[in-house]
Computed example of a mutant assay.
Amino acid sequence: MTLGNHDIRGNGYNTYTMLYGPSYYSFDFADSHFTFLNSAPGWAQKRAISDEQYVWLQKDLKKAQGKRIFVITHIPPQDPRKGVKPNKISNYENEVKSGESWAEQKLNNYNESKEMDHGFQDPKEAEKFENIMSTYHVDTVYLSHIHSYFDYTRKGVRYIITGGAGAELLTKNSYYHYIIEKIDNSKSVTRVELPSPANTYITRYLAATQLFANSMYEENPLAVAFIIIGFSLLIILLIMKIYLRKKQPINTFGKWLLDIFRYAREDFKELFKKKDTN
């Protein structure tokens, strides 16, 4: 198990280490060696892997020579997608831009982040990481972070990005999946594809909306319940306006409905504010 960038939000890092132990470690199984690294800070910070880890990593890999070595971490050193934009997450992650509402800021940041480079922010660190993998004859590096599937080789080392679970798909031809690798001389990887939305923007945005709604319900079911009630009442309001045409009751009912939306919005804002301050 290895930390992802969402796992270190708020008090996530301390919670993780309390429940699961160190954020980087290794072990042997039969004639294979498995090394787990913490690269989670690399999405929002200039440095993905700490100097302390790099020192430990090289000692660990040196001791493992002669075994098949597998390295597991979250953020890939380089983003294999073409045409990605520079990573600017650290510049605006908690910043409300001038003239934007809270909701606009969250939506714009979300859309912009999907097109950003999801690799290490520092190209020199990416090169350093890949050189270490090559120098110590690592067999395969398993990665995630990009919500898709990629399998490629750099400097004699195989890199597999498997990000087909947990969030909306990030590239046009990606799909939900998981992989099974049999650790033997065949070096075979079985990719199990799961039901996924069609490769159209509308379908994928609807699927992402459903994922977001489900996760928000798990976080704060009361706020979601108010939103559902609000939309239901809005439909009733429209029916009343069309068929009853009674202006005064409609205005009173509309004011009450607006108050419900305001309450739900403030509840969501308070929820995100608590997360940012943790």
Rank of each mutant, 00 (worst) to 15 (best):
D184A: 04
A103D: 07
N131G: 05
S23G: 10
F253K: 00
A126M: 06
L169G: 08
N87P: 01
G10M: 10
E112I: 04
F29N: 13
K187R: 15
A64F: 04
Q65N: 10
A48N: 03
F272W: 12
D79F: 03
V96H: 06
Y136I: 03
E93S: 10
Q78W: 01
N199G: 07
Q210G: 01
V138T: 02
S148V: 02
F120D: 08
T200C: 07
Y205S: 12
A103Y: 09
G163V: 03
T153S: 15
G12I: 08
Q53K: 13
Y20Q: 14
N108K: 12
N111F: 09
Y54S: 07
T2P: 03
I49V: 15
F70C: 01
E52H: 02
E52I: 11
E168H: 12
I132N: 01
P76T: 03
P123W: 06
I146H: 04
A207L: 02
N251C: 04
E127G: 00
L233F: 10
S32K: 14
D117Y: 02
R191G: 02
M116F: 06
V55C: 03
I183R: 11
N111L: 14
S39G: 11
I250V: 05
T277C: 03
R154E: 13
E112D: 11
K172M: 12
V55T: 11
R245H: 10
P80I: 00
M18C: 03
S188G: 02
N5R: 08
L257C: 01
I235P: 00
Y136S: 02
E270N: 14
S90W: 08
R265M: 08
N111C: 05
Q121H: 01
E127S: 11
F129D: 04
L3H: 09
G230Y: 01
S232H: 01
S26F: 04
I49E: 05
L169S: 04
A213E: 11
R81V: 07
I75T: 08
F261C: 03
T171V: 10
F120Y: 14
Y16S: 08
M133P: 01
G166I: 07
H33P: 09
L258S: 13
W56F: 07
K114Y: 10
Y24H: 15
K114G: 02
K106P: 00
R245Q: 15
N220T: 07
M240Q: 00
A126C: 08
Q121K: 12
A44W: 03
L244Q: 10
R154P: 03
I227K: 01
H177I: 07
N108C: 00
W43P: 00
I132G: 05
E115M: 06
W102I: 05
Y110T: 11
N278H: 10
E104P: 06
G42E: 10
I69M: 11
F226K: 12
N11M: 09
R158E: 02
K269V: 02
P221M: 07
T135S: 10
Y176Q: 08
S148E: 12
A30E: 15
I75D: 06
D51A: 15
Q53I: 11
K85I: 08
G166N: 04
F27C: 06
S174Y: 14
F27H: 13
S23P: 05
A44H: 09
D51G: 09
K241F: 02
Q45N: 15
E95C: 05
N251R: 09
